[in-house]
Amino acid sequence: MRFGMFIPQGWRHDLVGIDPAEHWAVMRGLAERADAGPWESIWVYDHFHTVPAPTDQATHEAWALMSAFAATTSRVRLGQMCTCLGYRNPGVLAKTALTADLISGGRVELGIGAGWYEHEWRAYGFGFPDAPTRLRMLREGVEVLHQAFTTGRADFSGEFSDFDGAIFEPRSTQPGGLPIWVAGGGEKVTLKIAAKYADYTNFSGPLEDFVHKSAVLDAHCAALGRDPQEITRSANFNLLLAEDEAELGDKLAVLRERVLPHLGGETTERFLDDYRGTPGVGTPEQVAERLAERAAHGLAYTIVYSPEAAYDTRTLELFEQRVMPELG
């Protein structure tokens, strides 16, 4: 199994209490730690406002961070999980991604999805098209990105954008251009887009859901005449590791204390529900067993998010020392 980790960027209230002037130093330090360690990749989210509710806590922009990490790391690959297609013209996004890729020496991955955070869309003036419209936007945008990365040109006339001889030079040094990750598990549209264009997919949920969606992806590939083995299946997991239940309870209590002043009681409990009873939360042995089960069903790439990374790297250390060796 291959492994990536998210760098805290504020979106999930994971830089609370740290002076904003120090945020970049914290993020850069964790990126450099990953670069020197066993991780294949580092990731950021593409969002502007915090979750599960918008607050005045900082959320740092994904593609600015891509270029910054490109310039300050040397080995790890760099990704976004995932870029919201509706926030950027796909041609401008392709140029941005190719520039970051050049800075990195050919290490950028392009994660793309339809977007979902309604408050954020409306706050930034994008409106909030219905789901079918957002998915049509995604389909068009991925086609433009694919053209840009594979041919260095884009000629496309669609419902949402028109490109007439757009030039995308210099091309990436990566064979075939930047790898495209299509995120989301929508069975009729998203997975069909992935079957046609994706190098990687990203969908999570219970194991039975992962197995089902993977089978749907296989069926779409068969209809298109594409070998499904060409597409690597990935999933994201919240990660919180401890030696026993008591220590795990202590870590959840610290997390609750951090976010409670910003989210209030009810929203804080919903926030903590993202950790309770989930595959990446438990002892190292429990998490290794759960990921091994998913690997047996086709999961080849795991991306983890530690809510305490900016404050305490013990969870990352336990994962590196006692989970990754069991699966790598």
Rank of each mutant, 00 (worst) to 15 (best):
G127F: 05
E32G: 04
E289G: 07
V323C: 07
E308G: 05
I193G: 11
Y311S: 02
D19S: 03
D199F: 04
R294L: 00
F319R: 12
T173P: 08
T50L: 07
L316V: 07
R314Q: 14
E118N: 03
W121K: 02
I231L: 01
C221L: 06
L178G: 11
P175M: 11
C84P: 11
V281C: 10
D164W: 12
S161G: 07
V287N: 09
Q57E: 15
Y200I: 03
D164S: 13
P325I: 07
R153C: 06
G105E: 06
I18W: 06
V216E: 13
V259H: 00
V304L: 10
A292E: 11
A253Y: 08
E118W: 10
S172W: 07
G4H: 01
L327R: 13
P20D: 15
R256Q: 05
E243Q: 14
D14F: 07
R88E: 04
T201G: 05
E118K: 15
D162N: 11
Q174F: 12
G4L: 12
A21K: 09
V287S: 07
V142I: 15
E159G: 09
Y311C: 08
A292N: 03
A295D: 01
A166M: 14
P261S: 09
L248F: 09
G113Y: 10
L135P: 01
T151G: 01
I193W: 06
P284Y: 06
I18N: 03
H49Q: 13
G165W: 14
Q286E: 09
I180H: 02
A70C: 02
Q321V: 03
A34Y: 05
Q57N: 09
E266Q: 14
R258I: 08
D164V: 12
E169Q: 11
S172N: 10
R122N: 12
R75V: 00
E22F: 07
H262T: 06
T59I: 10
T83W: 00
F3V: 14
I103W: 03
E159W: 08
G176T: 08
T73C: 00
A198Q: 02
Y200K: 15
L252R: 09
F149S: 02
L207S: 12
A309H: 09
T278Y: 04
S204T: 12
W121F: 15
K95D: 08
L318Q: 08
E289R: 00
P8M: 10
L78N: 01
G280Y: 15
G264H: 01
H220P: 05
G106P: 05
A34R: 06
S234C: 13
N89M: 03
L299Q: 02
G265M: 11
T150I: 08
A100I: 07
T283M: 13
A310C: 03
V144F: 12
G225Y: 13
S157L: 14
A58I: 04
L291S: 01
T96Y: 01
L138T: 15
A36T: 01
Y45H: 10
L248Y: 10
T315M: 08
P132S: 14
Y305V: 01
L252G: 07
